[in-house]
Structures are given as structure tokens and as C-alpha cells.
């Protein structure tokens, strides 16, 4: 027998970027502990529609923790209470009968609300466009082991490359800083031979774009690392700072 629970929901409703928005409340009576959090929201929306009410919009795609579309802030924690979990992979067994659950969108000037819990994260795309790519000719793909690179470096590059771009780091940061995302995107390319050539231009351009988008400064709260579904370390931010200062001092 699986557990059925009553969950009291309070969620953000906002009709568009210019609407002020407000909270609405709804109590779900038959929440199965095996449901994912997003499946619970599906049930909520079915019930709302049956009552001729407007469903609540939320973002998702893969529902398996790899695409980075989902990014709800639940009871004040990005992606909910568990570490290293995207909210699509969060299950209702982490909740108890009678729990009160508040759901908000990530709140940041650089992530304007499109509708309800869905925000516009194109600021992240523009940071990538500023330098998150390799444009030098690297030829056609060679046999992987032909490129000499230390294992430690390639492991680190891979770890940084696992960032799924969900924006939970921004959501949870008390300053709404995008330093973890930007740092991860810079480091994973700067550490590899193909990316190293453009490292100075890359770090400067991406840091400038990050600031232009209106994100906050990083005060080293490290909250981003705690909420990141793939556990990107704030070492990414340290690498970004070192690379940036190196680029400026060497003037390349």
C-alpha cells in the first residue's frame, strides 16, 4: 500500500510580466507518495480545470533531471528540500500528510516572469552567446586519446560541463548572482585544449554579459552549490575570478 497524503498548496499566479501577481491556495487530498512533485502539479491542474479554473503554468521538459527546464522554488528552497536533485526528480515521499507547501518562481530581475511559475531565462543564453563556445578551427574530430590532457583537468572540465542551465543558483542566491552558472560555463571550456586558446576573451566577455543582464554580485554565500542539482562547486567561481584577473593583467 502506498501512502496517500493531503497537501496544502500555496502557489504564485501572475498573468504576465507586467501583472503584479498573487498567491493562490488549493488543498489536494489524494497525493500519492510515489508521485513526483511535478506529477502532483499535474493533478492540481486537472482538478483546477475540472472546476473551470485556470491551470497554473510551470516549466518542464525531460522530467528526468537532465534538461534544466524545471526550476521551482519550494518552501524557499530552489528545487525543493533535497540536495543534488532537480525538482522533476523530487518525489512526494519527501513530504508528510498535512504539509504546507509554498511554490514560487525563481525571483530575479534578469529572470522576468512570463506566466505564473514560468520565467524567461534568455539572459543565460546571452551569456553563452558572449563566449560560451569554441570558434577556433580544431579540425575534424580526432581519436579522443590523441589529444594530450591530464586526467584531473578533463575530469574537472567534465564536472563543470554537467551544468544543465536551470538557474537554481540564481534563484537561491541572496544576491541573485549568476556567478555559478557563468563560472561553470567558462571553466568547462577554459580547461580543455580546444577552449584554452580563447580563454581570456571568453572570460572577459561572459563576465561583462553577466553584469549587463542585471544579475547581482557574488558574496560567497555558496548557497548556489547547495541547491545545484548537479552539485557544481563554487570552485567554478574561483576559477572565473582567477581567469578574469589573469586576462586583465596579462592584457591578451
Amino acid at each position: 500500500m502506498s501512502k496517500e497524503m493531503t497537501i496544502h498548496l500555496k502557489y504564485w499566479k501572475q498573468n504576465g510580466p507586467n501583472d503584479t501577481g498573487h498567491f493562490e491556495e488549493y488543498t489536494l487530498d489524494n497525493v500519492n507518495e510515489h508521485m513526483s512533485f511535478l506529477e502532483m502539479l499535474d493533478v492540481l491542474n486537472e482538478e483546477l480545470m475540472l472546476e473551470d479554473k485556470e491551470p497554473v503554468e510551470f516549466d518542464y521538459d525531460c522530467r528526468e533531471g537532465i534538461c534544466g527546464s524545471c526550476n521551482l522554488v519550494i518552501n524557499g528552497q530552489a528545487h525543493g528540500p533535497k540536495q543534488r536533485v532537480a525538482v522533476c526528480q523530487l518525489h512526494m515521499r519527501n513530504y508528510n500528510d498535512g504539509d504546507h507547501v509554498t511554490i514560487e518562481p525563481p525571483r530575479a530581475a534578469a529572470f522576468p516572469v512570463i506566466k505564473d511559475l514560468v520565467v524567461d531565462r534568455s539572459s543565460f543564453d546571452r551569456i553563452i552567446e558572449a563566449g560560451g563556445y569554441v570558434s577556433v578551427k580544431t579540425g575534424s574530430a580526432v581519436e579522443a586519446n590523441a589529444i594530450p590532457i591530464e586526467k584531473e583537468k578533463s575530469d574537472a572540465a567534465f564536472d563543470y560541463a554537467t551544468c544543465i542551465g536551470c538557474g537554481a543558483c540564481v534563484a537561491a542566491c541572496p544576491n541573485a548572482s549568476a556567478s555559478l552558472f557563468t563560472g561553470a560555463k567558462i571553466a568547462h571550456l577554459n580547461k580543455l585544449p580546444q577552449g584554452e586558446v580563447e580563454r581570456s576573451n571568453r572570460v572577459v566577455a561572459m563576465v561583462e554579459q553577466m553584469e549587463e543582464e542585471g544579475f547581482g554580485d557574488c558574496s560567497n554565500f555558496a548557497e548556489c552549490e547547495a541547491v545545484c542539482p548537479v552539485g557544481i562547486s563554487i570552485s567554478a567561481i574561483a576559477e572565473m575570478r582567477k581567469d578574469y584577473m589573469k586576462a586583465v593583467v596579462s592584457g591578451e
Binding site: 540536495q83 554565500f221 548557497e223 552549490e225 563554487i234
Partner: peptide
């Protein structure tokens, strides 16, 4: 830095809490 934080998040959360673990959020920070 503190003023930029107000600009970067004009509307705050209704509920907010740290996830702990590697976080350095504390009374001090």
C-alpha cells in the same frame, strides 16, 4: 554590492530558507 542585490531581486520570496550542506549562509554572512 548590497545595493546591486536589491536591484537584482526587486521582489523577494514569500518564504526563503537555506539548504545547508556546502552553503556558507549564516547569521554572519
Amino acid at each position: 554590492i548590497w545595493r546591486q542585490k536589491k536591484k537584482a531581486r526587486p521582489e523577494g520570496y514569500d518564504t526563503y530558507q537555506t539548504k545547508g550542506g556546502p552553503s556558507h549562509q549564516s547569521l554572519a554572512s
